[in-house]
Design a protein around this nucleic acid. Sequence first.
DNA 1: CAGGATCCGGAGGACATCACTCCACTTGAC
DNA 2: GTCAAGTGGAGTGATGTCCTCCGGATCCTG
Lengths: 230, 230
Amino acid sequence: MNEEAGDVGEERPLRADAARNREKILAAASRVFAERGLDATLDDIAEAADVGVATVYRRFPDKDALVLALFEDAIDELAALAARAEASENSWEGFVSFLEVMLERQCDNRGLRDVFTGSPYAQERMEAAKERIGPAFSALIARAQADGYLRSDVNVADILAIEMMISSLGGAKGGDAALWRRYLAIALDGLVVRRETTRDLPPSPPLEVIIAALHASKGVHRPHAKSHAG
Amino acid sequence: MNEEAGDVGEERPLRADAARNREKILAAASRVFAERGLDATLDDIAEAADVGVATVYRRFPDKDALVLALFEDAIDELAALAARAEASENSWEGFVSFLEVMLERQCDNRGLRDVFTGSPYAQERMEAAKERIGPAFSALIARAQADGYLRSDVNVADILAIEMMISSLGGAKGGDAALWRRYLAIALDGLVVRRETTRDLPPSPPLEVIIAALHASKGVHRPHAKSHAG
DNA sequence: CAGGATCCGGAGGACATCACTCCACTTGAC
DNA sequence: GTCAAGTGGAGTGATGTCCTCCGGATCCTG
């Protein structure tokens, strides 16, 4: 996938077991970052990969390199998808479908969301990657506005904000469908220019699901236990 | 305000300087928690109050007590405001005005927002306090739905989710008005049953403001610097 | 299969954070 | 003036995280 991250290149092929471990690490990191976000420890990832920490560090010089290897391509792919949505026949559908893509991926992957909220890992390269999405995103918005679908008093920043707000609920489910579909539907009803009826909503969540999602949306800070508690 | 927290009661009046310090601590804690959220250290608060840490701990047995003293009343006040909104003549206006109250307070006060997302400080009492808002909140929603203003396919959990999503942007400003007013307006356009035009939006924010707000919305995790960096 | 380069695990070093305490000293109240 | 009440801030201990060290296991070559 991404040769340059964490290795010298094609200098010397890895020993068989080392190559196997490298894949195990990438797979585990992908799982763990997706579930727990970029705050997950490399120790956690090593454990999930069934490998020692040192092995992780031998393959990837530091956490940044691992994050980069996993997410830079993912972001570039989003940029490509934005460009493809731009080519959509109907500008509103193109706009909506891209929002759906973003939400789907960010809600399935807390690590990806962390990248977008500006995590400190591999910051520079990630900022640069994110900026590669911008132009197509702006174009999608502009076209949907020019065609009279999307209200004209919102801008890129607004749509980005709305997308991030919705994704902050994470991958919680309401019934079968992901929860974000429900709130995207409501947001779209608020963003569309003309609207006769209300859009149908995906299944509603019980209150507990929302509460759990809200609790989970911020980092799971486990404060220190009292040392001298009675 | 709240006698029971952190003191034996009316047993023995505090010495003049001690009473003065207690107020300084409460004021500082209010400021610091509002700005930095409940993760702020008691050391931070002591510094802001221009007082030693020990002084804080002498007045409040632990962090929970301080949080409780500051926020339990605030939440009960929100419950009272919800009840008052219930008495509003127009059910839609009552519903909207309560959302505005919640958003205004939560956006001005990151600590209050932390309480609602379920921070671990004084957890039990806070959960109980929050539940005291529930009934009036449900009633507001039910009435706005019965009167044909609020779409009937949403429930309390949805409104709570939307309110929390919007407040996650914090107290950022777009022009003069707080940013949350803009996204509340859009959400309301998506939540109202019938809608001919779009609601006017408060001033829009530049992209940087949104990005900064997104960065700030999660805890400001400053990861450890590398120790052996070249 | 021998020998050496490569790779491994996991203990632990270095550092940071945070709730909370200890105690020599100061201050207010009578 | 006396002394209980109060104070500051260095210090403690628990926890968390990134990353390294090194004795030993593993793979590849001849």
